[in-house]
Simulated scan of single mutants.
Amino acid sequence: MNTRAYVCLLLSVVSYTNFSCATENGDTTWPLGVQTVVPALMPPPGGTEFYSYTVYYHADSYKGNSGRSAIPGFKLDNFVQALRLVHTWNYQTDSGVQFTSGLIGTGGHIKVEAGGQSDEKTGMRQAYITPLNVLYSPTPQLHLLGGVSVFTPIGGYDKRDLANTTPNYTTYISEFALTWFPHPNWEVSLAPTFSVNQRNKDTDYRSGNVFNVDYMVGYRFDSMPKLQFGVAGYYTKQVTDDDIDGTDLPNGNRLEKFAVGPQLFYSFTQSAGVVLKWLHETNVKNGPMGDSVWLEAAFPL
Rank of each mutant, 00 (worst) to 15 (best):
T3D: 04
A5I: 01
Y6K: 00
A22C: 12
G26N: 03
G26E: 02
T29R: 03
G33I: 02
V38T: 07
P39T: 05
A40E: 01
P44C: 01
G46P: 02
G47L: 03
E49P: 00
S52I: 06
T54C: 02
H58T: 12
D77S: 14
N78A: 12
H87Q: 11
Q92P: 01
H109I: 06
K111M: 08
D119C: 09
T122M: 10
A127I: 14
Y136S: 08
P138C: 12
Y157M: 10
D158R: 15
D158K: 15
A163L: 09
T170E: 11
T171G: 03
Y172M: 11
T179P: 03
T179H: 04
T179S: 15
P182G: 12
N185Y: 06
K201W: 03
D202T: 13
T203H: 05
Y205P: 00
G208S: 08
G208F: 00
G208R: 00
M216V: 12
R220F: 11
P225C: 10
T236C: 12
V239M: 14
D241L: 06
D241V: 07
P250H: 12
G252I: 06
G252H: 07
K257Q: 15
P262C: 11
F268S: 09
L276N: 05
E281H: 03
P288V: 01
V293N: 01
W294G: 00
